[in-house]
């Protein structure tokens, strides 16, 4: 018999709720983040009994959040404008954050893939191998995307310092 020591789902929400929310905000913007968070944890709760007991919960949750965020992007795309394939350029969902927050504008201006790689790597702390599993491509490509994204973000930040002030 396999030892099954699956935690109560509440524990997962407690341990990973904040990280998943940060990832959602970075990926779909603060406007849609709450909905994507809800859909992520609801899907996860539904599937939880079938998840292997030794699975990495955070990687699993981020994977679900990724899928739900794609649904959200598609739905928003349908609402906003009749374009077919999303170009690998600026995301239409880079909703600005709270007033006077320049950072969101900058993050939103990153190409979608770079933005996701950065969120999954630096907010969810996933290794590049897991990120490649989520986004497709190789770990090396994910690493390059992250480096490119950071470089671009630094450039953007240098051009327009955030008005909120950094510590």
């Amino acid at each position: 018999m396999v030892m099954d020591t699956k935690q109560p789902f509440e524990k997962l929400v407690e341990l990973h709720g904040a990280t998943v929310l940060r990832v959602c905000r970075a990926v779909v913007g603060p406007g849609e983040a709450d909905d994507v968070w809800q859909e992520t944890f609801l899907s996860a709760l539904r599937a939880y009994p079938e998840l292997p007991a030794d699975a990495n919960h955070e990687a699993w949750l981020v994977t679900i959040a990724h899928r739900r965020s794609l649904d959200s992007v598609r739905a928003a795309g349908r609402r906003a404008m009749p374009v077919g394939e999303m170009p690998d350029g600026r995301s239409p969902l880079g909703n600005p954050g709270p007033d006077g927050d320049g950072v969101w504008d900058q993050v939103a201006r990153l190409p979608d893939k770079q933005r996701r790689v950065i969120a999954y790597r630096y907010l969810a702390d996933l290794p590049f191998a897991d990120i490649a599993g989520i986004l497709g491509g190789t770990p090396a490509a994910a690493r390059r995307s992250a480096a490119d994204g950071l470089k671009k973000l630094r450039t953007l930040m240098a051009e327009t310092p955030p008005q909120g002030g950094t510590p």
Partner: peptide
């Protein structure tokens, strides 16, 4: 968190 952390993008975290 890494380089995109508080110092860089406080509102992300």
């Amino acid at each position: 968190t890494g380089p995109v952390d508080l110092a860089f993008a406080p509102h992300l975290t």
